[in-house]
Design a binder for these strands. Sequence first.
DNA 1: ACACGATTTGCAATCGATTGCAACAAAGCG
DNA 2: CGCTTTGTTGCAATCGATTGCAAATCGTGT
Lengths: 342, 342
Amino acid sequence: MSEQETPKARPAVRTLSDLARIAGVSAGTVSRALAGNSLVNTDTRERIVALARDHGFRPNKMASSLRRQKTDVIGIAIPLGHDSRQQISDTFFITLLGHLADALTERGYDLMLRRVIPERDEDWLDRFIGSGMIDGLLVIGQSDQFDRIEDAADGYLPMVVWGNHAEGQRHCVVGTDNRLGGRIATERLIAGGARHIYFLGDTSAVEFAARYAGAVDAAERLGVTITPLTSHLSSDRLEAEVAANLDRSFEPGDAIFAATDTLAIASLARLKALGIAVPDQVRIVGFDDLPLAAQTTPPLTTVRQEIRAGAFAMVDLLIRRISGEDTESIVMPPHLVGRHSG
Amino acid sequence: MSEQETPKARPAVRTLSDLARIAGVSAGTVSRALAGNSLVNTDTRERIVALARDHGFRPNKMASSLRRQKTDVIGIAIPLGHDSRQQISDTFFITLLGHLADALTERGYDLMLRRVIPERDEDWLDRFIGSGMIDGLLVIGQSDQFDRIEDAADGYLPMVVWGNHAEGQRHCVVGTDNRLGGRIATERLIAGGARHIYFLGDTSAVEFAARYAGAVDAAERLGVTITPLTSHLSSDRLEAEVAANLDRSFEPGDAIFAATDTLAIASLARLKALGIAVPDQVRIVGFDDLPLAAQTTPPLTTVRQEIRAGAFAMVDLLIRRISGEDTESIVMPPHLVGRHSG
DNA sequence: ACACGATTTGCAATCGATTGCAACAAAGCG
DNA sequence: CGCTTTGTTGCAATCGATTGCAAATCGTGT
């Protein structure tokens, strides 16, 4: 077994200079050859490339990054401000992350993921930016860090944020028109006969606050009562909070607008446990249109966000910002997906 | 607005030398001061630390990594071999990723995520390892890359893999005893009256193959028929494949063992659409015990994997490997969670 | 007053790849 | 044949932080 251990017991080619010595050229030439630089003679280049392959040589990325002042790595920060536990597992964020990974990989970037708990680390944004490890930064969700993000954006161009767009904000954001989404969800409920709407969500996150604001717009305009109920997204609290919030007597005309499909699905489960029929006794509308939303009983009526398109837009904007352009934000329209829950 | 733009229009302290000049010391001293090295005078150190804070100075991590030959970054590779699209969104993998992020952050590591499509990139493992960007590597799922992982493990100690453990394998793995899990799932179905079991999953991934093997063990021993049906996990194919696989006439005694809760939940939805009652006409058992499993109708009977414990174990092993120890694999026992679907 | 030890600081090499500039050779031109 | 042009290659500086070793400072003991 240990004698087998040396199929390639060569001195190990670790650096450009090692390879250069073997090839009988200088390190500079090897560097240029591997970079496909046309300055080197074609024969030389092919010989060097072949040698590199044979010896399994890979240039050290740290050294390269240092010299070029470019890492080909994009940072992804997930602030867990208003909800410090485990928001990373929220299906929506994860789906977005998956698509971002797709888009970035396609463009030749690696991604460096960092969970951030702003309460414990005031300095998270500047630290990440200043580390020199990343060429650009994507922030997934503003959480309650809107102001800090604004501050950072003043001095750091290559940053794009997923979240809500506010009038006159300075950082570049991609997201859904949350207020409009809240409005159409609420209008749907009211059109279905709702007279009293409970909003389930955590309004200290700006995205959700905007959905709530939209709901209030519609409710007030149409003369319907609306009551906010705070429910967090962290998986360890979600069920209990939803249960507590729904432990009330519902009357005809009551309805629920959940800030998130995750919350809506938990509500569905809770109501079933309580023996309350959806949508007959209580109507529910969610937000996101996760794949799961179509599979619940009854299938969930929800407001769709275009996650994949959003992810690709974020990457596109970021890359333009990296090259110096000061891009505008993108606000995507939400679409109501009418199914059977509300 | 643009006049406001310079609240701190100082020359910008970007390097150790910049700060050293301001502090009136040498770069070496600054480096030692910021590292908390006791060689420097306490007064000097405090002065330098304060100065660094005032100027928002952050040492360049690339330079540091290069010099120290240590990056404090752990790579996480997600091979999408047997299922190239979007496996990253599989809830199980994502949950694992979340916990890994927790554990690594706690230990002071950053994480670099890389989706890998081995078909398109033969060299993915050595490339990641050889890049010099990471101090260690976690691989989430062996997919169909078992042999390649074995090869790499011979020459690279700091690597831990989530997946299945095979007799005599050389790479360090953390995972559930999939074969045993498959067995107990199947025994449960048979105890409930099943005479013919359909296995839903993709046996080209070793983890799932082991679950199937366990199912076959139990079925053969107890004289029950078992039929494998190939269903992939990628979100774009999953529904159609499950639908196609379940588009058959079920007879009394038929049951389904889904390799994954995700598949089980999709099956539940499909059977409901077909008007087939669970568990009265067909019993179903899943695998993973995702949070969602408790919320389906009927609640899903499944085999639980301890994801969080597994994630922390992986990180623990990895860190010991980074410091040179050659750790053993960890195989965790699966637990049947009996609910109502099977 | 001098030597010696303990602290503290500076100097300069180092990590490995990249790249501007100079050097050199070969080829083209008058 | 001498001179310019084109094509290749080497040399050495550079990115920014770290660290072994030497040097400087201060204090103390004799």
